[in-house]
Design a protein around this nucleic acid. Sequence first.
DNA 1: TCAATTACTGTATATTATTACAGTATTCAT
DNA 2: ATGAATACTGTAATAATATACAGTAATTGA
Lengths: 223, 223
Amino acid sequence: MKTAQQTNQKNAVLTKIQQNVLNVIREFMENNSYPPTLSELGQALHININAVRDHLHALERKQVLRCIPNISRGIELLHAKPEGIPIYGFVPAGHPFMSQENIVDTFEIRRYISASNNVFGLYVRGDSMKDAQIATGDLLFVDPDVEARDGRMVVALVEGEPTVKWLQKEGSTISLVPANKKYKPIVVDKNDENFKIVGVVVGMIRAMDKLRIDKMVNLKKAS
Amino acid sequence: MKTAQQTNQKNAVLTKIQQNVLNVIREFMENNSYPPTLSELGQALHININAVRDHLHALERKQVLRCIPNISRGIELLHAKPEGIPIYGFVPAGHPFMSQENIVDTFEIRRYISASNNVFGLYVRGDSMKDAQIATGDLLFVDPDVEARDGRMVVALVEGEPTVKWLQKEGSTISLVPANKKYKPIVVDKNDENFKIVGVVVGMIRAMDKLRIDKMVNLKKAS
DNA sequence: TCAATTACTGTATATTATTACAGTATTCAT
DNA sequence: ATGAATACTGTAATAATATACAGTAATTGA
């Protein structure tokens, strides 16, 4: 006989069978685009639907899923599996830095670079931003929706040619300053029709594996 | 009256109403963890369930979804929406670089840095890798499963202290070379117990927004 | 103008799926 | 040893869903 009030047990440990039920649900949802019904779970687990029901209610009490009443396939998995990869603190920081407690963040690009929905990537070629630690092959994240304030690194179109430079505003003139003494700043008028700021550089990524470098060389040849 | 054979129309254009039905299905699935039933769609669209059915069959013929027979909520959307953000070619490359055809890749971190499942992130502090274009605040992707060959950038533990350096192998000795003339290489024996290579640096990401910099300063204070 | 497609309504029916009720048996902590 | 949670079986009622059949009406391309 079913007993009455069963208290909420957040973060309670799952039994082996409950874990198994959860795994079967996950597997089903990976293969099927819709959650399983009670009888489908019963078949998969070789048990009666009411046993399945008991398990689902237990899993609900333990906060790993939610059952929506009177809805077919009304199972909602909570705690959506963390998608990102772990990010540890500074180098050099503390000694046992590769521990669970030292994960200061999880890698999730949009959150990291806090960009709008219009961000796009752009590969860098040339050494004009060398002193800003930006090299050929680097991938820049450019956000058109971020305000291009003085001092920010921007991507601009000068007479149709895209370039990455520091932005420097002085009255009605705008200077596009490279981070390399070898090159001179480009000075244009604020209202120059041949000049347009595409977006602000909000992030950067660099691949250090040979495969990517080869790919970039191929791209270079193709262009 | 329903007419007989209706040919497959892959890539056919959706009518306005069909597009609307698809949008409602997408919206429902974003909010609900399970696909909608016919009557739920009927309610949302203010039409009879058999009208919904007709639309679903039309969408099925046009290959945008699949209806699984005799299965409640048996709707499977095809052509899963592209998750990544677009990545354009080199800068400077061609003039109209922000066009659909110039998307050379889509941003998806794991594919980009071609790393194992054990990659982790690590923030950099200090200027010892300055000449390799790596600065304080940069986030390194370190892969413990990549072979630490001569010349690669590695994260090593020297007497418990983690450091980022170039790896240089010479016979039985290993040199950890900084990319900054201000600092001297660390030379250790191959079998030194106080020395361990944690992983190879396979990628790097840099955030250029102020918020992140503030966060990093806070982390610095806390450590 | 004719066939095909689109866009619906309405009633009915079969199937699918959830819920309810009534048990049995085991384990586990107090 | 007693209450509570776990782990099941079985039958039945009810609600939720999908499907079938029979239409109507407007639009579109050949």
